[in-house]
């Protein structure tokens, strides 16, 4: 087990199907994936566990993902936390806005299968 496998990854996603899917794939690769089912919960959990990497959905029922991103990034503990926006929303200027708000990367979910997402997450953790 490499050093990275101990690192904390938090998935903030309100769709249960996706949480289920990513949870299984990450554990298949030896990662323990922390999960939050909405924006508010995500903020609370990230404060609690101080993850190394956050995979953040944008379109959620309770909160706008961009607000979640800004909120977490404004916290001291999250100074070195890599937050990757993982969404299906492609909107002109949105990626730029996310990145300028502190997002480490911007992924379109439907373009990647879960395995590829895991590989990407590994890359982010190594960097």
């Amino acid at each position: 087990m490499s050093k990275d496998k101990n690192k904390k990854i938090l998935l903030i996603e309100d769709d249960p199907s996706q949480r289920m899917m990513y949870d299984l794939e990450f554990s298949n690769f030896g990662y323990k994936l922390d999960m939050a089912s909405g924006g508010k919960e995500g903020i609370r959990v990230s404060k609690e566990i101080k993850p190394d990497l956050i995979l953040l959905d944008l379109v959620m029922n309770d909160m706008d993902g961009l607000d979640v991103l800004k909120e977490i990034k404004s916290q001291k503990y999250a100074k070195d936390t890599k937050i990757v926006v993982m969404t299906n929303l492609t909107k002109k200027g949105l990626e730029k806005e996310c990145k300028s708000s502190g997002a480490y990367d911007y992924i379109i979910k439907s373009k990647f299968i879960p395995k590829e997402i895991v590989k990407k997450a590994e890359k982010y953790l190594k960097k």
């Binding site: 769709d15 199907s17 996706q18 899917m21 990513y22 299984l24 794939e25 298949n28 379109v59 969404t87 299906n88 929303l89 492609t90 379109i108 979910k109 439907s110 299968i113 879960p114 395995k115």
Partner: peptide
């Protein structure tokens, strides 16, 4: 928005099928 609404189920269907195929 339409593309978002379309991609969301697609990402799950695609993800599930790929995992099934790989035996994950």
């Amino acid at each position: 928005i339409a593309s978002h609404q379309l991609r969301t189920p697609v990402s799950v269907i695609k993800g599930v099928l790929s995992m099934m195929k790989e035996g994950s």
